[in-house]
């Protein structure tokens, strides 16, 4: 697994950047506890963010519903960090 991220903070920063690009807003306006949908992101944007995640975190075969099950930067970062460390992901309800 080749990943360029070293810490969960880096994961979070990568996500904030990706969301900001997709939503067309400055990165510093992205709140990490807001649902992605607050930024008008749709499934196509999710696909792009997903690709960004694959590239940056070196993860493959992400679950199709990852972004829906972990709908904020914070929760998604947790989930990805867990994946990166090859630990089971706790499902958010």
């Amino acid at each position: 697994m080749s990943t360029t991220v070293q810490t969960i903070d880096e994961v979070r920063a990568m996500l904030v950047e990706a969301i900001a690009v997709e939503a067309g807003v400055p990165a510093d306006t992205v709140a990490t506890d807001e649902p992605f949908t607050s930024y008008g992101l749709d499934s196509m944007a999710a696909l792009s963010v997903g690709m960004e995640i694959e590239d940056t975190c070196g993860l493959k075969d992400l679950p199709v519903d990852l972004l829906w099950d972990h709908p904020t930067v914070d929760s998604l970062a947790d989930a990805l960090w867990a994946l990166i460390q090859q630990q089971p992901v706790a499902e958010e309800v």
């Binding site: 949908t37 607050s38 992101l41 749709d42 499934s43 709908p71």
Partner: peptide, 10 residues
């Protein structure tokens, strides 16, 4: 409405 309900325009 999509934002308010954590859903998408779709």
């Amino acid at each position: 409405l999509a934002r308010e309900t954590a859903s998408t325009p779709y």
